[in-house]
Deep mutational scan, measured.
Amino acid sequence: NQESVVAAVLIPINTALTVGMMTTRVVSPTGIPAEDIPRLISMQVNQVVPMGTTLMPDMVKGYAP
Rank of each mutant, 00 (worst) to 15 (best):
M51I: 11
I11Y: 00
A34T: 06
V19F: 13
T18W: 05
V60A: 01
S4M: 02
V6H: 03
I37W: 11
Y63K: 05
V27I: 07
G31C: 03
M43F: 12
Y63Q: 05
P29D: 10
Q47F: 04
M43S: 06
I13P: 14
E35Y: 13
L40C: 03
T15M: 13
T23M: 14
N14E: 05
D58L: 11
E35V: 15
S42D: 15
I37V: 07
V19N: 14
N1H: 11
M22N: 01
S4L: 02
Q2I: 12
A7W: 02
Y63F: 15
I41L: 15
P38N: 12
K61Y: 09
M59N: 03
V27S: 14
T53V: 13
A34N: 05
E3K: 11
Q47A: 14
V9G: 05
T18P: 00
V26C: 03
T54M: 07
M51Y: 11
S28H: 15
A8C: 04
M51D: 07
S28K: 07
V49I: 13
V5C: 03
V6D: 00
N46M: 09
M21T: 04
T18H: 15
N46G: 04
T24N: 10
Y63M: 04
A34L: 04
V5T: 05
P65L: 09
R39I: 08
I41C: 03
T18F: 07
M56L: 07
A8R: 09
L55F: 13
G20V: 07
A64D: 13
G62I: 04
L17G: 00
T53C: 03
A7C: 03
T30Q: 12
L40S: 00
Q44D: 12
T15K: 12
Q44N: 13
V45W: 01
P29C: 03
Q2R: 12
S4N: 02
D36E: 13
G52A: 05
P33V: 06
V49N: 00
N46V: 04
N1Q: 14
L10F: 12
Q2L: 08
V60L: 15
I41R: 08
G62R: 08
G20A: 13
G52I: 02
T54N: 02
T53Q: 07
A7E: 00
T24E: 13
V27R: 09
S28P: 02
P50C: 04
A16L: 10
V48I: 11
T23D: 05
P12C: 03
I41F: 10
A8N: 06
